[in-house]
Design a protein around this nucleic acid. Structure first.
Lengths: 230, 230
DNA sequence: AAATTTCATATATAATACAATTAGGTCCCA
DNA sequence: TGGGACCTAATTGTATTATATATGAAATTT
């Protein structure tokens, strides 16, 4: 008969009012919100409610609080936006197979995307990184952590070059799930070499815009990894 | 000389302790946290700090507060908690292109993954869905919402068929960002038809395991959308 | 002019009081 | 013996007040 009375909490109300101000354009990126005291007066609520609302929007990456100065709408959204996703991956454990598949597929995706965007400057950045790694290897350095770090840097660089903020964000999350696996996979000298050669092959296919070979390479890599983990 | 003293706020500390408990497995999905008063005692902080920390984790979809009962770790993170991502589209309008690219790339990724896994049963599921949609279209039904819903269902079905929990999860997030865009793009009769034909093409390439054509199709679709948004 | 201090402003934390919601038990009566 | 009304303990929700701390700018000193 009667529909449920939605007793929206005070905090939710405040959150929504701030949200609305942003979406309506009354508050633009970089703008300063009224001070806590002003908000208390304007909204007619307690200070705790205002603070809790601001904290929620801070957690979501929408607001930014600078102590002694005030509260501001963020200029640029941080990758922390995908933190909830990261949590969900922790809360609901995933199988290794799923994780690999995702990683390999994501890498392929990034590379495909890059093929249409690569220019000489971007190749320079990649080449510089590769020279650094090969130099270290040639010099006899066998520090696993270094090569693991460079492996991560290589993949992050590729993601950066897509110039797509969303891809970067999701990529960060995926890579953050991987350090142990990378370490395990290159924790032998032949692992290091294989990693370097793998990257070189990737770059080669990127230069020649050879999607077929690239996707075959990725598949091959996946197969190798699978073998190793049995 | 001295490195900066990171004065982590009390609230952040509480947030991190709760996070850690979850990640270490001391708190599992569905578990009840200590009451506010207990947390105050155990952590030696004020109630405001505890409440603000809980509010942040609630905003991230990690905790769930039931008044009169307590605070719990969520069983399953809902995709709706990613809505804040929509903020990034308001704050950084240029990311529309990014979002679109991500979507197209993710779809491609799913399809590539599927190619090696498809069996007759899976094709049956897809065919059933397509028959339903085409039936509706043939019957003269032009309800936009219906076709938008079916477009979403089509893409969700493809993701389901990968049988990869991670892909499903990330896909949910991406798709949840799209209803309005999809709606815009098929909000004309020719839009509906185009959507249906596009899906049919996808299925065809899936059957023939033709990766090249598939990736070309996706590129073509991307180009079309780009044109439309100018 | 440069360095230091002071001060106003804003957020951070804590403590207290009371309100509201929920689950479950108790009581009472038919 | 049921079953409904009521009560109560536990827990979160909101408001208020007090104090602490960080920040930037103004005032002061050197």
């Amino acid at each position: 008969m009667f529909e449920r009375i939605e007793n929206e909490s005070v905090v939710s109300t405040v959150v929504n009012k701030i949200k609305k101000s942003i979406m309506d354009g009354d508050l633009k990126p970089g703008d300063k919100l009224p001070t806590e005291v002003e908000l208390i007066d304007q909204l007619g609520v307690g200070r705790n409610s205002v603070r809790e609302a601001v904290k929620m929007l801070t957690a979501l990456g929408v607001l930014e609080v600078k102590r002694g100065q005030g509260t501001f709408v963020v200029e640029k959204v941080k990758p922390s936006f995908f933190n909830p996703l990261l949590f969900s991956l922790i809360i609901e454990p995933k199988s290794n197979k799923d994780l690999y598949e995702l990683r390999v597929m994501f890498d392929t995706m990034v590379l495909f995307n890059l093929m249409d965007k690569m220019d000489p400057d971007k190749f320079d950045q990649i080449d510089n990184l590769m020279e650094e790694v090969e130099g270290h290897y040639a010099s006899g350095d066998k520090d696993i952590d270094y090569f693991v770090g460079m492996d991560v840097r290589f993949h992050k660089l590729l993601m950066d070059l897509t110039e797509n903020a969303l891809i970067k964000q999701i990529g960060e999350v995926i890579i953050s799930l991987f350090p142990e696996y990378i370490k395990k996979s290159i924790s032998q000298e032949k692992g290091i070499l294989r990693s370097i050669n793998n990257h070189k092959e990737i770059i080669h296919h990127l230069r020649t815009k050879d999607k077929t070979s690239l996707s075959q390479l990725v598949e091959k890599t996946l197969e190798e990894w699978k073998e190793e983990w049995k």
